[in-house]
Design a protein around this nucleic acid. Structure first.
Lengths: 212, 212
DNA sequence: GCGTGTGAACCTCTTCACAGCG
DNA sequence: CGCTGTGAAGAGGTTCACACGC
């Protein structure tokens, strides 16, 4: 596999293609065209072909792409063939909800464990997992060598959680915290920003009114 | 206010600036520079000035931007001066968690109500709100004229939920569902895609390994 | 004939660097 | 003098349209 530098937008789309392919597989389809993938993902077929051709020639002219093969190739590119463990930091409502709802339909991620610093919560169950004390994070991260951490702590504690994770060796974080977090360059932090999504929706809603 | 066509990325950043400004206001700061906003949001100061200059000349050369004024202006642009009501469809773990955790620190959004189609759940409390039967959605949407709906239903029911919302007149939707949804052109649908975020994180994590 | 892979044109967003104003 | 606002240059991503292979 040749390392190719590539935009995040393209990676996001690969993730979407993978999702479509899993669904196509379930439906029993063995061949899929760029047009079908495009319609399912809400983009143009040229964009799909461009994305895929960056990494290789996966398709067959005149027919399309083999569903199974393309999925394997994309998972290989994403590195999700054997997905890393995911841990949750913060057993509040959001953290527990994530744990309970699980990650079915994804590349095969599973929530490995959930942590909190509130002694009253330790040992209680979220779904099938017991909430663990936060000081056990570092040994968990050392055991699995690669871990993605989801930060779902209450407002204001996000930075503390991040620093604890980074110290323990974690370098991939998905934060539900409202505040922007500071992290070293070698640590990738992504955000789920419900309030920004609401702002974007409000903006487009209000803009439409003005136009009409 | 002149209507300006503008990219979604710029709107997202305006949302971030608004968040920084609210924090600056709480800290009691009255003036802020593009550089400070930039550092807080992890981008360049030129980008901040560019974003803001699209809509007007909000700053003072030599000093910076008045925190209060800039916040008012940005909220005016976003349309969040009086934010629309937000409703939640689906009182599963995610829906309830959102309702319970609320929207503090945002432009002032509040979750107005939560709906489910499971008779066993109707009337039970999520935080301070009772879960309402799904057929009451249309009257709620008619009462408030503008509503953003958050779809947090179980896998496979997302499209049904969307259609019900669209029929009731809702045109702004934030979906936590895994599957991509089809909607009419005049309806804006956005997604919270935890599984795609995990894929992006996995990709960058695995890529780093290869480089080292 | 059909659908992929891709050069080339196009378009959009970002960065640079500096004039101009307080 | 400091910081904004912005023309101009640059970088990056998308779309077009068609040659090529099945």
């Amino acid at each position: 596999m040749i390392a190719v530098k590539v935009s995040e937008k393209s990676i996001r789309r690969l993730s979407h293609y993978a999702r479509c392919l899993r669904l196509a597989k379930i439906r029993g389809e063995s061949i899929i065209t760029s047009q079908e993938l495009a319609t399912n993902c809400g983009i143009s077929s040229a964009a799909v072909r461009r994305d895929l051709s960056i990494y290789g020639e996966f398709g067959k002219q005149g027919s399309g792409y083999k569903v199974d093969d393309l999925l394997v190739n994309i998972e290989n590119i994403l590195g999700t063939t054997d997905p890393p463990s995911v841990i949750i930091v913060g057993a509040g409502s959001i953290g527990c909800a994530l744990m309970i709802s699980g990650l079915a339909g994804t590349a095969g991620y599973t929530y490995d464990s959930i942590f909190d610093n509130d002694p009253a919560k330790i040992g209680r169950y979220c779904g099938e997992k017991q909430i663990r004390p936060i000081d056990e994070i570092s040994e968990v991260i050392r055991d699995k060598k690669e871990v993605i951490a989801v930060i779902a702590v209450s407002s204001g504690s996000g930075q503390d959680a991040l620093e604890m994770l980074v110290d323990a060796g974690c370098n991939a974080i998905l934060s539900f915290a409202l505040e922007p977090l500071k992290a070293p360059d070698n640590v990738e932090v992504r955000y789920v920003e419900v309030s920004t999504e609401l702002d974007v929706l409000t903006h487009s809603m209000r803009r439409k009114e003005r136009v009409n």
